[in-house]
């Protein structure tokens, strides 16, 4: 009886403010600072897969860095994000190249911003509403306010409780065409009070046989993160 009442109250509750939900989402998907390891598996049209292992460091103020560990062909590659700026360090060139945030992340179905950038509260505006098909979630309909974002609009389903944990995302171009869809699952407690989906499947809605999985193996939000790792001159060292 009590459970039913709570559920009913939850389902009929007024939607929270968009800013509150997006701030929660950003805190879940990209805490202020953290150190992590993750594995991405790209599934291609022909059924074959390619796996990538990486170490990720996120600093304050929209700074991120990735070191690729596997496969051997890309070992030594690094990526750096500083605000709207993205670079990739190529060991064969011994230098960094500038990247667009929309560029594909290692040829998979994530793009650079999907992995290195999660600042929806700053980049998007929109509405929060119920979705009768997914009553345990809020549906966020987002429109970009930043020309540098990868997607013009996003439909994002996040859990009502705990608020902000994503369940599904649909990502659109300015013409309304769906480019990608994402399923977020396996919410895991990574310690220090940080819970997030440990498994993300990003589907390519243009080449529908393709999809990529990102599995977060470890996330440490208490790790010390120094500013020195986010300077362009540190790449390759």
């Amino acid at each position: 009886m009590t459970t039913s009442l709570l559920l009913a109250l939850m389902l009929t509750a007024e939607p929270p403010a968009l800013k509150e939900v997006l701030t929660k989402y950003d805190a879940v998907m990209a805490p202020a600072t953290f150190k992590a390891t993750a594995t991405m598996t790209a599934h291609r049209d022909d059924g074959t897969t390619r796996g990538y292992k990486m170490n990720i460091l996120k600093g304050a103020d929209d700074k991120s860095r990735i070191w690729f560990q596997e496969p051997a062909a890309v070992r030594g590659q690094e990526m750096l994000r500083n605000g709207e700026n993205f670079w990739v360090y190529m060991p064969n060139l011994k230098r960094a190249l500038r990247l667009a945030s929309r560029d594909n992340f290692q040829g998979g179905d994530f793009n650079n911003a999907d992995v290195l950038r999660a600042s929806y509260a700053a980049d998007y505006q929109g509405t929060v509403k119920e979705d009768a098909a997914k009553p345990e979630t809020w549906l966020l309909e987002l429109k970009s306010t930043n020309p540098d974002t990868s997607y013009d609009s996003i439909k994002l389903w996040v859990l009502k409780s705990p608020l902000g944990i994503p369940v599904r995302g649909e990502y659109f171009t300015s013409s309304g065409k769906m480019l990608r869809s994402a399923e977020f699952s396996d919410v895991k407690d990574f310690g220090n009070g940080h819970k997030r989906p440990s498994h993300v499947v990003m589907r390519n809605e243009i080449a529908t046989q393709r999809f990529s999985e990102m599995h977060w193996d470890a996330v440490d939000t208490a790790a010390p993160v120094g500013d020195g790792k986010f300077s362009l001159s540190d790449l390759g060292h």
Binding site: K35, A36, T37, N55, A72, R75, G76, F190, G191, N192, D217, A218, V219, D220, A223
Partner: peptide, 21 residues
């Protein structure tokens, strides 16, 4: 436990080797 797993996963290895023929 989390800290131990993270330490094992993210600590910089003493020797990292790559290459090709």
């Amino acid at each position: 436990m989390h800290a131990l797993v993270l330490l094992l996963l993210t600590q910089t290895p003493l020797v990292a080797t790559t290459g090709y023929v």
